[in-house]
Structures are given as structure tokens and as C-alpha cells.
């Protein structure tokens, strides 16, 4: 069993947890993920590792309540335990000095970009972080991002913060003014694809972190297969990071839709059950 040592709401329906998992805390590196399973009937869900505290044996995860398992996880309290927590999985991010790195994050991807910019900055890269959100009140972890970035910019769809529009609007402006040596993108697939299209023309090396459906997370089942440069890769063991210009985005989008109808059934069942339970804060 793995204990929830701290719980903090960092945004609207976005939770930050620290889980006691000393071996993972000791060995995890930026870019890797864990898989959790809440209880005996739970599914295996991958989440990026946001940070670790090896001294205290803690692994921090941040997640948005978007489906049955994340809603269930959010309903737990500090001190509660989850059944399974395995990792660190996947390849760590390759850390080297590129020069200027532009980190692009959308939605809860902000949490996932944090560990990567932290280590990239440590080795001497200049970090420009661009965050996209629908609206100002959906932006999370602004202070933490500011600490790890040389420049922090925002794009909101409704114009309530930063530039009105998309991250690509901000990026077009930056790359016209400044030499960009690497782009690191994590967020919704449509955003990652749009950024990759933009940087392809400009020939900027672009890494994306993919989030296909996963099951075992150890390269055994093939559920997370993605097509990279026409070749089949497994995101769990070959990734999760890939060259954004090589990804077959259309296929990734369609494969993510595989269980949409069944997910709804699961969410509704959970909500019904929750109504009959006391919701603890």
C-alpha cells in the first residue's frame, strides 16, 4: 500500500499529491512516469512524476479530475493509501545543453513540464516557458513555473491572461525574434501537434511527451503503440518522449478515442456511488 502523505488542490479540479514510495523517489528522473491503481478493482493509470523528495521518500504527482480513476483518486484524503504505485517507467528526458529551450505546456501538462525545465536549466539552458489555458482561472503552478523559467508567457483562449489566442500565437512571435534550439511540448494532443507543425517549418528540434492508452506500462501489451517515422514504437518503453515531427498524430488521436463510450459508463457509475457516500475533504 502507498500512503498519500500530502494533498493540495492546485487548481480547479487539479490535485497535487505526495505519495510515500521511497524506491521510486530515489531512482526517478525527469520525464518518467508512474502507474497507479487505487484498489483491487481499479485500472492502471499512468501519471508523470512531477518531483521527488528522496530524503523523505516522496513522489509528487499532479492530476486533473477527468475520468473515473482520477475522480476516485481525488476523493481520497491525506493519510489514505492506494493499492499500487509502480515506477519510474519510461526513458528519462535526455538532459544536455541546447542553448535556449522553449517549454510549452497546456492544461495539466504544466505540472509535467516542471521537472524537465528544472533539470534543463540546471545544466545551463535558457528556459522560456509558454503556457496555454482556456482562461486565467485554469492556470496552475504559476509561481513554481516562474521560479524555473527565465521568461514565462501565457496564452488564454479568452484573453483573460497574457496573449488572447493559442500557444502557437505566442511561439510564432518568440521564434521570429529569438534563436530557439529546442522545443519541449507537453499537453493536449491537438496542442502538441500544432506546435510540431509550426516548428517543423522552422526546423526546430521538438520533443513531445505522448500519453496514449496504457495497460501494463512495461512493454508487454502493445496498447500504447504509436507510429514514429513510420515505425511502431511503444510509448511506455520506447518513450514517452518522441520527436514531434515524426509522430503520426492522426493515429494517436483516433487510438485515444478507443474507450470513450465505456469511460462514460465508468464515470457515471462512480458518481452514483459517491452520492451515497460522505465526501471527505
Amino acid at each position: 500500500m502507498y500512503k498519500i502523505v500530502s494533498k493540495q488542490e492546485v487548481g480547479l479540479k487539479v490535485q497535487s499529491y505526495e505519495i510515500y514510495a521511497p524506491e521510486i523517489a530515489k531512482n526517478a528522473k525527469a520525464g518518467q512516469f508512474i502507474i497507479f491503481r487505487i484498489d483491487d478493482k481499479g485500472e492502471r493509470v499512468p501519471l508523470t512524476i512531477v518531483s521527488t523528495n528522496p530524503q523523505e521518500g516522496l513522489v509528487r504527482i499532479i492530476f486533473q479530475e477527468t475520468g473515473k480513476s482520477t475522480e476516485h483518486l481525488a476523493s481520497l484524503c491525506k493519510g489514505d493509501c492506494i493499492r499500487d504505485f509502480v515506477g519510474p517507467l519510461g526513458h528519462p528526458t535526455e538532459i544536455k545543453k541546447y542553448g535556449t529551450v522553449i517549454a510549452v505546456a497546456g492544461g495539466v501538462g504544466v505540472a509535467e513540464v516542471l521537472p524537465v525545465i528544472k533539470v534543463l536549466r540546471k545544466v545551463g539552458n535558457k528556459i522560456i516557458t509558454v503556457v496555454g489555458a482556456r482562461s486565467k482561472d485554469l492556470i496552475i503552478l504559476e509561481n513554481e513555473l516562474r521560479q524555473e523559467s527565465d521568461l514565462l508567457l501565457f496564452a488564454t483562449n479568452d484573453g483573460t491572461y497574457g496573449v488572447r489566442g493559442f500557444v502557437t500565437d505566442v511561439l510564432r512571435d518568440i521564434i521570429s525574434k529569438e534563436k530557439s534550439d529546442m522545443m519541449y511540448v507537453i499537453g493536449p494532443v491537438s496542442m502538441m501537434q500544432a506546435v510540431a507543425e509550426l516548428t517543423r517549418e522552422k526546423r526546430i528540434h521538438t520533443l513531445v511527451s505522448l500519453n496514449p492508452i496504457m495497460l501494463d506500462g512495461t512493454g508487454m501489451c502493445g496498447a500504447c503503440r504509436v507510429t514514429i517515422d513510420g515505425k511502431m514504437k511503444f510509448a511506455c518503453v520506447d518513450g514517452p518522449e518522441f520527436n514531434g515531427h515524426s509522430v503520426n498524430w492522426e493515429e494517436l488521436v483516433s487510438r485515444l478515442a478507443l474507450f470513450k463510450d465505456l469511460e462514460k459508463i465508468s464515470v457515471n457509475k462512480f458518481k452514483n456511488e459517491q452520492e451515497h457516500k460522505c465526501y471527505r475533504k
Partner: peptide, 28 residues
């Protein structure tokens, strides 16, 4: 890579290990 083309490993892991034949009582 079309949807609903499973590897036997994935299909069997879902059914045997994750009990998905009993969905939605089991989450997978």
C-alpha cells in the same frame, strides 16, 4: 494500429489480470 485491433497480450491482460469481463464493477 486501427482501433479494436488488440494484441493477444493486451486482450488477455485486460480480461485475466484486470477482470474487464466484469466491467464496470472493475474499472478496466
Amino acid at each position: 494500429n486501427l482501433n479494436r485491433i488488440y494484441c493477444a497480450n493486451e486482450f488477455l491482460v485486460r480480461v485475466n489480470l484486470m477482470h474487464s469481463y466484469d466491467f464496470p464493477a472493475y474499472d478496466t
